[in-house]
Design a protein around this nucleic acid. Sequence first.
DNA 1: ACATATCATCATTTTTTTCAATGGATATTA
DNA 2: TAATATCCATTGAAAAAAATGATGATATGT
Lengths: 297, 297
Amino acid sequence: MEIRSLKTFIQVAERSSFTKAAEALNYTQSTVSSQIKQLETELNTPLFERINHTVTLTQAGRTLLAQAHQIINLVDEARAYSGDEDANEAPVRFAMAPSVCSVMMGATYLRFHKMYPKVLVNISEGDTDRMLHMLNQNDVDLVFLVDRRELNSNYVVASEKKEAVHFVVSKESPLCGKKNISIEEVLAYPFFLSEKGLSYRRIFDEKLAEQNLSVTPVVEMGNAQLLLELVELGDGISLLPDYVTRKSYSEGKIGYLDVKDFEIEIWRQLIYHKNKWVSPAMKKVIDYCSEVSETVL
Amino acid sequence: MEIRSLKTFIQVAERSSFTKAAEALNYTQSTVSSQIKQLETELNTPLFERINHTVTLTQAGRTLLAQAHQIINLVDEARAYSGDEDANEAPVRFAMAPSVCSVMMGATYLRFHKMYPKVLVNISEGDTDRMLHMLNQNDVDLVFLVDRRELNSNYVVASEKKEAVHFVVSKESPLCGKKNISIEEVLAYPFFLSEKGLSYRRIFDEKLAEQNLSVTPVVEMGNAQLLLELVELGDGISLLPDYVTRKSYSEGKIGYLDVKDFEIEIWRQLIYHKNKWVSPAMKKVIDYCSEVSETVL
DNA sequence: ACATATCATCATTTTTTTCAATGGATATTA
DNA sequence: TAATATCCATTGAAAAAAATGATGATATGT
């Protein structure tokens, strides 16, 4: 039993005529004839009585007519519904690097929620490897990562931005305002850093390793905002990307260190898997994040 | 959108795998692939995300899955239902000659109703021509007619029985018991006959016409039972088939006339149109009437 | 009786579906 | 890390199904 035959059946039933049904459907009469016969064979019962020149539904036909209408209605609904954006509102599963998360998950997110109250966002955090793995497993739709720029070609980069990473200290720190300090000198001070393996912490470690150096922080944690607060109040050094420190810096709460021959830059990248279908909701998230990434962050 | 594709779609969705779905459906994997693609093209949206080796429903796919289930359920129901006798209980539209009707529509019908309480019967009466026309127009399913035997080949004769037609008089009639009376002599008496054109009345008229005779009844009516009662109580003659008079005759309430060279025979025939689909209900009616026609009537 | 309209049937053409084989990409295992 | 498995997409050929066009049988209406 196929939809095509059912549609034909309905036409014949409604017009009490094979010929008229054929005209209505742009078929040949013989096509209608054989489609009905096919149905009758499958159901093993006549659907019409052809007596002289009148075509009348049998009782089985009458039963099928009602059912056919229901079926066709559902099919039409399915066809119409699938294109409907509102119907396709699935939450966007969004993973972010912890530092981005701590910055985004305040006023920025609330503004987005006000703009698109119906778009739901699931947020998880993680390091770069874990987030990429989640993309590969389709456990997550979208990732906002902070790392080196290089990515294999499995991912679409929706937007990216280069960020400087600064050594930050409190205003009271003896290092505050100094220029051209050597990295060795800086390493003598206590460090407050993000966890090993996390984005710029890893980049930092690798860069140190190139010079056969290493660092042992006194505090390790993922939350960039808390690290910043620690720096503000304490006497340690942290290494944080510009978008985290910018505000505090301009408010004069912290100072930057200018370390000689030691520049770190990272990329904030909003990416998704190349085979991903971008749902309307996901599109909204991407657009918003890209804009925020350019202007606010 | 066809049922076939929807079934495939459901399999893929439930197994999260094109290959597994193909195995389950005894298709090739490429067949599954193209059927899904066909659906996606028609709905203009991806239904699955193929990311690495995982197949996941998109939101549109999730929506369609629910709808596809509904559709398939309805289709299965339609398939199962059509063979169901109970579901196909349409009333049997039954036309009878008035004389048969007046005999059948008593205990005989009640007995039938007791046997098959679910079979509904619509009864109408009419003369032979009108009843045949009703069969041709499919206004009626089954006809019990009383007439000459000849019928064109458009009809199936489910059962038939030859019946004698007797001249009947009351026990008190001077004619009662007489033998070998001439038709002319009989015609001098008052007649109670069925309406002009009705079965044996017409045959009677035609037979008279052959001998250039005619009759003008004092009472004309279709109801054979009432005619019989009139004869019993009055002094007229009627012409009634054996199945109407038998009982009264054997109870000694009426007498037959033996008219010289004047034999009338008719056929009771249960017929339907050759293109008719015989529903289960109709079959029951036919079987019952045939049996009754052989034994009781 | 003839023209017209009906549905069924059949041979033929056209379209669709299915298959088998292959390729590209990824994951698994040794 | 290399060999192997498995996955889905693609392609071209084969098979199946659907649609057509012509014809036939039958009934209707003029």
